[in-house]
Design a protein around this nucleic acid. Structure first.
Length: 473
RNA sequence: GGGACCAUAGGGUAGCUUGGUCGAUCCUUUGGGCUUUGGGAGCCUGAGACUCCGGUUCGAAUCCGGGUGGUCCCA
């Protein structure tokens, strides 16, 4: 994978995920195969959220005055908003914004919905498309003008502590979600100058792509009472006082799908974790003129048996050479393939081939092969996950001199440094190195350094955090 | 925000400098037919393109201006 951009662009087309030739900049068409992957990913996500969130659906349009209410927030988005200005030939009295995100659509309604402490907490989410007029060059799934898959959750709480707690809960949900996809991540608290417009603080997940750049794949914001005050969301406490609520919001987008493709993909093409692969196992009958009916009948029988065990199966019985099918299904990321020809039929065997390492495994068709296949799925998933995590762990390089930054970045790695955490100092570091600070590690994990006695890499005051720097998308 | 480059079948390309030979090259893709099929088959026969608008010219894929779309670099 010499040139990731090129590889990524090709794979989207060859594996029929999206068609990026739609004639509007930054907008693409989801193709059936891509749509199935998207659907499977969303199902995993919904299962996690539905435990204690309610799914809702808000309108696409936001009245101008509501959008403009929260000054800091609107400033963060004002250059990116698409506007609806006409109804037919007639100019509208009040312009309507196409949501770049839905805080300003939702919160006026929250103000009506929240009456007393009994209503709280409220936890909603929706999965919608949003629009942002990106001026930088767009990239399919990564920087788009229509975010087709924007999962945004919004929660409302009666105390700051509970909102803070919700941030941790949301982080936990996202970790679980990324784990299901086998996607490794760096979890950082974003620097204050890079937080969500209007938030108290922002926690963000970044993954690591083969070209050495990090990709933000999820964010969790503690909104404090900023929006509550702007949109007058108050509740009556147990002792009849009226107070503003505390809020959080957290989101994921198409970028999750981009990261599944980018993180797991290889020279052979797409490589999908079994949980989300549209075809978990592809059966390829080896057909000769003689005896092809028997072979296909056996394949159908196996398909049925596997489907009864909840496995997604397809049979490729096209009249082309088997070798071509092997290449195509490897390109499409099908985790396992099953080959069955007349020779196997006679011995009552079949050959399984793993997409991750191309290992061939003979199975006895009289045995409980569904079990064996499910075990292989687990093994493939674990292998993919481990490979991806090993790579990101190897890519975070601890430095103790700012001069090393550009060297590390040029080698396609992520920089870990000790930092005082001060804004002035951080901005100076970004200025000197011309590299973005992702943020700080706020919990003990494999990416936090032991800071005992360490000094900030720039100002030499006491180091309070492990900071990360990377070339970003 | 500033700049550079690019646009030819579904995908990738040659042709453009020096306008006419282009009725546009090659690979891939693709319809039909026959022989085939255990890692990208072969033969026969078809299909498919000069980004859009305007200009220069006897004549534009080729030159000029603009739109749209794409790629990359810098802030």
């Amino acid at each position: 994978m010499e040139n990731f951009s090129e590889w990524f662009h090709n794979i989207l087309e060859e594996a029929e995920i999206i068609d990026s030739r739609y004639p509007i900049k930054g907008m693409s068409v989801w193709l059936p195969n891509g749509f199935k992957i998207r659907k499977n990913i969303l199902e995993l996500l919904k299962k996690l959220l539905d435990k204690d969130h309610e799914e809702v659906l808000f309108p696409l349009l936001v009245p101008e005055d509501e959008l403009a209410k929260e000054g800091i927030h609107v400033k963060g988005f004002e250059d990116e908003v698409y506007w609806v200005t006409h109804g037919g030939q007639k100019e509208l009295n009040k312009k309507l914004a196409i949501r770049p995100t839905s805080e300003t659509a939702m919160y006026p309604m929250f103000s009506l919905w929240v009456r007393s402490h009994i209503d709280l907490p409220m936890k909603f989410y929706q999965i919608v498309n949003t629009f942002r007029y990106e001026t930088k060059h767009t990239r399919p799934l990564i920087r788009v003008r229509e975010i087709t898959t924007f999962k945004e959750a919004h929660t409302v709480h009666s105390t700051a502590k509970e909102a803070d707690e919700q941030v941790k809960i949301a982080i936990g949900i996202y970790k679980e979600f990324f784990d299901l996809l086998g996607i490794p991540y760096l979890l950082s608290k974003r620097p204050v100058w890079d937080k969500f417009p209007g938030a108290d603080y922002t926690m963000a997940f970044d993954t690591f792509l083969p070209d050495g750049k990090t990709l933000q794949i999820g964010t969790v914001h503690n909104l404090g009472q900023t929006f509550a005050k702007t949109f007058d969301i108050t509740f009556e406490t147990e002792d009849n006082a009226h107070e503003h609520v505390y809020q959080t919001c957290y989101g994921l987008s198409d970028r999750v799908i981009a990261s599944v493709i980018g993180v797991h993909g290889d020279e052979k093409g797409l490589h999908l974790p079994p949980k989300i692969a549209p075809n978990q196992i592809t059966i390829i009958p080896i057909l000769f003129k003689k005896g092809s009916e028997e072979v296909i009948a056996k394949c159908e029988e196996i398909k049925l048996a596997l489907e009864l065990n909840g496995i997604r199966v397809n049979i490729d019985d096209r009249d082309i050479r088997p070798g071509k099918k092997f290449y195509q299904w490897e390109l499409n990321g099908s985790p396992l393939r099953l080959e069955l020809g007349p020779r196997d039929l006679k011995n009552n065997k079949a050959i399984l081939v793993r997409r991750d390492n191309l290992e061939k495994i003979e199975i006895d068709l009289d045995s409980e092969y569904s079990e064996k296949i499910n075990e292989l799925f687990d093994d493939i998933y674990n292998n993919m996950k481990k490979t991806a995590w090993d790579k990101i762990k190897d890519s975070v390089i601890i430095i103790d001199n700012l001069k090393e930054v550009n060297n590390v970045i040029a080698n396609g790695k992520v920089v870990s440094f000790s930092w005082c955490g001060e804004e002035e100092c951080g901005k100076a570091i970004e200025e000197i190195t011309d590299v973005d600070i992702l943020g700080t590690q706020n919990e003990n994990n494999e990416f936090s350094q032991n800071l005992n006695g360490k000094k900030c890499i720039h100002c030499e005051n006491e180091a309070k955090y492990t900071g990360l720097m990377a070339k970003t998308y």
